[in-house]
Design a protein around this nucleic acid. Sequence first.
DNA 1: GCGTTTGCACGTTGTTGCATGTTTTATTAC
DNA 2: GTAATAAAACATGCAACAACGTGCAAACGC
Lengths: 255, 255
Amino acid sequence: MNAVDGSLPRERQQWILDRLRRDGRVVAADLAQAFRVSDDSIRRDLRDLAAQGLCRRVYGGALLAQPVAPLGERHHERAELKRALAGVAASLVGEKQILFIDAGSTNTALAHALPERRGLTVVTNAPDVAMAVLGRPGFDVLMLGGRLDPHIGGAIGSRTVRQAQDIRADLCFPGVCAIDAASGLWTVDAEETVFKQAIIEASGETVAIATPDKLVASATHHTAPIGAITHLVVPADTSDAAMAAYRNAGVAVHW
Amino acid sequence: MNAVDGSLPRERQQWILDRLRRDGRVVAADLAQAFRVSDDSIRRDLRDLAAQGLCRRVYGGALLAQPVAPLGERHHERAELKRALAGVAASLVGEKQILFIDAGSTNTALAHALPERRGLTVVTNAPDVAMAVLGRPGFDVLMLGGRLDPHIGGAIGSRTVRQAQDIRADLCFPGVCAIDAASGLWTVDAEETVFKQAIIEASGETVAIATPDKLVASATHHTAPIGAITHLVVPADTSDAAMAAYRNAGVAVHW
DNA sequence: GCGTTTGCACGTTGTTGCATGTTTTATTAC
DNA sequence: GTAATAAAACATGCAACAACGTGCAAACGC
């Protein structure tokens, strides 16, 4: 590492960035030694660069910010919240039950959270979900066929609906676009609506897992109603008023 | 295993994840030695990654969350060979073709190797294969439904066969158990046989990708014949005699 | 002179290795 | 084949340490 003395702050950041692009990583302590400045100054530089999205700050240095695929990103954001909600939802599942699990990143988290060795049968339209449980002990997996929608990550067409209608499940977990207390689930796409309605009608109980952005006071624009739900899983910090509204509508609210 | 000293904590997790994606599995003790940290730190890393759903924790290390456990090992061994064969097989695919892709680790490699933006339609019974192409530009994916066999990694039952029979494809890639020049493909399981026969009959041409252990002089024990193939992809070091035998049987041999 | 940058002090947070006790797997004895 | 045992891997709590952010005053450059 070449020592670079007497450099301007801005110049130093540029140098760090070049280094970062070349090596993919920088160590704060090394930089401080190379520039003969304090660790604090380097930390300030890295903080600035990270604020501009030019690097990813880590403990002890920084890594090059790597662009992530659009679907993969949605999978990561709110990941810890989704995992927590998925854990709660998984606790609603009993022994030897048949579960409809719709496509979606939250439901993929649910599939991972499902307990093993309980004789569960998972019926899904999403290869993602199928892969999450396939091969784990005590799981039967039934894959619904059809043309896969790349945005949804699963099959939702008429062929898929027909297959779903041949099954009777204990629980179903439809992917949630929006949800309100008065009328239940909503979605944007017509085909999605048909599929979700089908799995709800083919199931004894319906569980909706709702991240905060899905809970709306009143669904309005560009959405079509799907139907009522029996269980709702929400984050622990959801307002009491919102939960009460769902309870009054006959929905069991879990957190 | 390269020793990686002076790495940043978070960087180490990234490194483990890359390793995991490449090999399908990691051993905790090896990682600890490579990074020159205690086993505890590695365990903490793996625990964090598993909590994010990025890997599946097992006793002694971790496996990639995506592939199935028994299949995952097969995926690792001969991985580079399978990638090479998959590349050759992918070159047999033309524009706007419809492909039947059976389950199996070799075919998963094929799916990854398929060229983008060629208007290809992939029909498969394996969620593995579907995930490999879903979302990539220029792919249509048709998922065949049915009960998934955890050992095979795909659906092969009568329901699946019926769906396959409704389709006409240009090429099909049946998973190979054993193959000989005289009678073509063989397999061990009766249900598998029915499925493979169905997709072969529904396709114009049949491509078999054969790793060395699949090429046998004469299939004998516990196998049922499936049928003839039109193309065979073999390793470059296959004997001329073996390749000549297939060519005499009217099979186009590629390497 | 004034804004910026820098280094330092301080309290806070993240990471690590070790000690402890528990769980899982492998091995041995029966 | 099953029970008892040994070994390895595991989780947890803890203390030491490194890195962190912040506030502030001194030093620097225009």
